[in-house]
Structure formats: C-alpha cells, structure tokens
C-alpha cells in the first residue's frame, strides 16, 4: 500500500490503549495536516508515549484506527513504517557501530539503494554531526546520540516524524539545531508530532498543540489559541518585592483586589492567581506601586504552555473533557 498524497499526515480515530484496568489512552481522535508541527503535551502518565508507540506500529491498541499518510497502521504496517519516522524517548544507539555504519544499515533497511552514502551525509549535516561520521556511537555524548537517532529518523524522508522527548539531554546549541531541523521539516511538507518536558522549547517549535490528561485529549488547536484559552481561565503572576518588604501585608493587599486569588508566599516572592487580561495586569502593577508596595519583579509565572500543563495537572483541565 502506498501513501496517499492528499491524505493528512496523521489521522487518529477513537484510539484506546489499556494496560489491564489502567486506561492509558481513551478515545483519542485528531487529524494532523502535512507541514504542521504538533506538540503533544501533558503531565507524566498522560498517555503520550503510548500514543506515540501505537502511531509507530510498535504497540497494538485495544481499539481505534491510526492512519499515516492515508495508510492504516493495522492493515499495512510496513507501508505505514515507510511513511513515518519515530524517535523514542532516551533514544538508544548501538555501541558497536560507527555513526555512518549505523545510519547506512538503516538506509539499506529502508530500501535506499542509489545515493545511500550521499543521503547519510545529508542527514548528518542536517543534525550537525558531519564531523562525527567515523566516531563509534558509544563515544558520543547523550545529546549527540539523540541527534544520531534523529538523523536515522529522517533518513527515508518520512511524511510524518514522531519524536518523543527529542530535546532531553541536549545542550542549548543542540536544541537550537533541533528547532532548526523541525522548521526545515515543516517547510519541506513533513508533519511532526513532538513531546517534550521542556515546554518553553515546545512553544517555539510547534504550530499546533494537543493537551492530554489521563489518556484524554483536553484541548487541541494552534498554540496561541490553546494558551489563550487557558490564560483566560487561570493565570499566575510572580511578584518579587524589595528586600525587607512586608510580604504578609503585600499578600493581604493583593488578595483584596477583584481579579486576584489568594497569593502564595513562595521563596523570594508572591505567586498570585490572576484572571485578568494584559491591560488589567498592567493596571494591577500601577496600583501596587502607588500603594507603596516595593515591587522589584512582576511577571507571569512560567511560559504559557507551562501554565497550561500545571493547570491540567492540578485541575484536570478545563477544556472539553
């Protein structure tokens, strides 16, 4: 079975994965068009890795359908594998092969015959590891090993790339390279599904985001829409005061404001639940300064996506669950 050029890169319908009585993924359904980068986010145990493994044909679901480039993974797993690249969490590499040997073997397994060496060099350049071509895999740092596996994932120019925690173990330079790679993939029409605990990274990489909690899809859409929806419901402000300030009095003042919840006195400042928009945030700061509170630092706590994750972790999400 061959890929359907008009079909979305990924279609998931009513996906369910069980481990005994534990429901890892429950009724998951969404489409991912080509040329989009989807961030799959959720706390630990949300069902991200199970979803990834089912998409990658490594695990059979309890029920539900997954199509990669129009190919049903249950009916034609080999066809689906030709169209997808999967990079697992803590991506392992063989200790007994050189980098080029490792990539070359997988290029062969994907049926790449002509120009195999050129393709290996290209993907090494893509992940900025050309100088490590003749190095044994076990001599690489963890971040480099991640990049080697990313190179392996890209060898056969898949229609869909599934990357589970690709940034873990990478230094800032490698993360920057990863972001560039994802952007390059997106521009070349490849769809990418990526998960990461480094949520700040995801915000910059993704065009779409899917929020998962306890196996269910809580929210799905463009990053700004999802974060806006969450921001409107709950925002947390971090306010740091000048040394020697009376934190208790300041907390009492903030608690009395209309849009503020009860502040928590955290190390070095106050964390205040806030349900206003950006203008109201500015107004609150102005009022606080006028009230004589010695504000040294005033910001939203964490990135937008981090807040969303914290929100669904603490409250089970407020979306369509």
């Amino acid at each position: 079975m061959t890929a359907d050029a008009s079909a979305p890169a990924l279609e998931i319908r009513d996906l369910r994965v069980d481990y005994g009585h534990l429901v890892a993924v429950d009724g998951l359904s969404f489409d991912l068009p080509r040329g989009e980068v989807l961030g799959l986010v959720g706390p630990n145990g949300a069902g991200k890795t199970s979803t990834f493994r089912v998409i990658a044909t490594l695990q059979e679901p309890t029920y539900g359908r997954v199509r990669v480039a129009g190919i049903d993974t249950a009916d034609a797993p080999a066809g689906a594998r030709s169209a997808l690249g999967y990079m697992p969490d803590l991506a392992p590499v063989p200790s007994d092969l050189k980098v080029w040997e490792f990539l070359d073997c997988f290029a062969l397994a994907h049926g790449i015959r002509g120009g195999r060496r050129q393709r290996v060099n290209e993907v090494l350049e893509e992940v900025r590891l050309t100088d490590k071509r003749d190095t044994f895999c076990h001599q690489l740092s963890r971040g480099m090993k991640q990049r080697v596996v990313l190179a392996k994932t890209l060898l056969h120019t898949p229609t869909l790339c599934v990357l589970d925690e690709p940034a873990s173990g990478m230094d800032p330079a490698s993360r920057s390279a990863l972001r560039a790679t994802l952007e390059h993939l997106r521009r070349s029409g490849c769809a990418v599904v990526v998960s990461s605990h480094i949520l700040g990274e995801l915000s910059g990489m993704c065009t779409l985001v899917a929020l998962m909690h306890r196996g269910r899809l809580v929210d799905f859409g463009p990053v700004h829409e999802v974060t806006d929806r969450a921001a409107h419901s709950r925002k947390r402000l971090l306010v740091r005061l000048a040394p020697g300030s009376d934190h208790a009095a300041a907390a009492e003042w903030f608690a009395a404001r209309e849009l503020c919840g009860t502040p928590e006195v955290a190390a070095g400042g106050l964390v205040i639940p806030f349900s206003g928009a950006a203008e109201e945030e500015a107004g609150l700061l102005r009022e606080a300064v006028l009230a004589g509170i010695a504000v040294r630092h005033f910001s939203e706590e964490g990135t937008a996506l981090e807040r969303v994750i914290m929100d669904i972790h603490e409250n089970g999400g407020g979306g369509d669950e």
Partner: peptide
Amino acid sequence: MSDPSKTSTPEP
C-alpha cells in the same frame, strides 16, 4: 543546515 531544495529524496 542543508537547503530543503537540495536534499535528495531517497528512492526505495
């Protein structure tokens, strides 16, 4: 970083 237009598409 390679240019997408220059990347060779492997032929299975």
